[in-house]
Design a protein around this nucleic acid. Sequence first.
DNA 1: GCACAAATTAGACAAAGTCCAATTATTGAA
DNA 2: TTCAATAATTGGACTTTGTCTAATTTGTGC
Lengths: 143, 143
Amino acid sequence: MEAISYNRPSLTALLRRHGIAPTHQRLEIAQVLFGRCHHLSADQILARVNEQHAETSKATVYNTLNLFCDRGLIREVIVDPKRVFYDPNTDPHHHLYNVDTGEITDIHAGALSVSGLPELPPGMVTEGVDIIVRMRASSPSVG
Amino acid sequence: MEAISYNRPSLTALLRRHGIAPTHQRLEIAQVLFGRCHHLSADQILARVNEQHAETSKATVYNTLNLFCDRGLIREVIVDPKRVFYDPNTDPHHHLYNVDTGEITDIHAGALSVSGLPELPPGMVTEGVDIIVRMRASSPSVG
DNA sequence: GCACAAATTAGACAAAGTCCAATTATTGAA
DNA sequence: TTCAATAATTGGACTTTGTCTAATTTGTGC
Ligand SMILES: [Mn+2]
Ligand SMILES: [Mn+2]
Ligand SMILES: [Zn+2]
Ligand SMILES: [Zn+2]
């Protein structure tokens, strides 16, 4: 993962490097995404951005997340049919999904290897290979 | 995949084997699921079931799909953030997803192997490993 | 300041899915 | 059969996630 410090000047530079004008709202959203918690949903990001003082609308959060995805700053994680999660880590990696809690953890791609994938139909090219390990507590009620 | 013939008596038996009372609506839905096309969304199933003559409601389609999933008759495929697809094949296998067309194709698990998956946290157990290969036409506009 | 483009916004809208109270179908005992 | 009890189905209201649009605000350069 690209090493990123989470202060305004470096986030501003990060956006500029991806051809994105660094507005106040976009910086707030970037700060939430690249700050501590990974794998947040749009709703969670909206809430965090407006925690101290309301300053960003729902429309802008969605606009910005889609823009960041298009420009390759972040990527979507599709594991929960109810909502999309956004991942500031765009390096190839995979996910461990706790189906009970909804928590998502990274699986580094380094150690992992997949063999035996079929050839794609002619004219098709791989956009990505997503591996999701779904896990739950071994005994539903007890420990 | 369990070998299933798609006539009423065998579908009835299939439901009974899974502890599901075989009502008219459930049999219609099972017929659509286990008939030709795999990987259908709830909406597509609703449309097919009511193709000849309207006889099943949206609520029943959702109720039934959830019931079939709970009882292990079918499974969900989470690849498209907009809708869930339902898979009558519950054997371990993976999916090739055409991001342009939305088409989903099976990848048989036989040939495929994954190594280097991390250990799960204590007390956790794997519910499944989903591999999704996302592909698109190699050149966006031309062939 | 002024003009022009780009970004943001509130709120209407759309689609997927759930929920509920009322109706209808199924079951199985008499 | 008939009947009562139970289970399934239903229309439609509702919720949630996400998109769209027209109006406003902001930013930039002159
Ligand atoms: Mn702030
Ligand atoms: Mn029919
Ligand atoms: Zn991740
Ligand atoms: Zn499949």
